[in-house]
Amino acid sequence: MALMTILQAFVEKCNQHERLRAMNREWSRTVVIWAEDTGSRYWLRSVAGELQAGQGPPEEEANMEIRADGETLEAVFSGRLTPTEPYNQGDLMVRGSQDDLFRLDVITLMIWGE
């Protein structure tokens, strides 16, 4: 499945999660996602608890950047891998604040569980 489709499904799942929406109400961020093997770029945006996803560069300056190969990104955003697994292997690299990174991990924890 293409990464964009997976990101759309991820966004939908997040937006349907009441507790997550409440948790992210104050968290407005833009995250750029680079698939390094294909050079493709995607973005996730959180505005008042609502998530959006898109392809290409975002309109605004990003708060965070995630880089990995496409396969790893697909596994992470479809819930087959926790983000911490490739992250602790050095296969998923991040730039941005640790708090935002922690928040992203918590989001995946809440929608897919342990």
């Binding site: 948790m23 926790t82 983000p83 911490t84 697994e85 922690f102 928040r103 918590v106 924890l109 342990e114």
Partner: peptide, 19 residues
């Protein structure tokens, strides 16, 4: 982080209401 990568018991990654 170790609990999230499944190297330690998953319950150690449980969060309270304040994350």
């Amino acid at each position: 982080a170790l609990a999230r990568e499944r190297s330690l018991p998953a319950s150690w990654a449980r969060l309270n209401d304040r994350l």
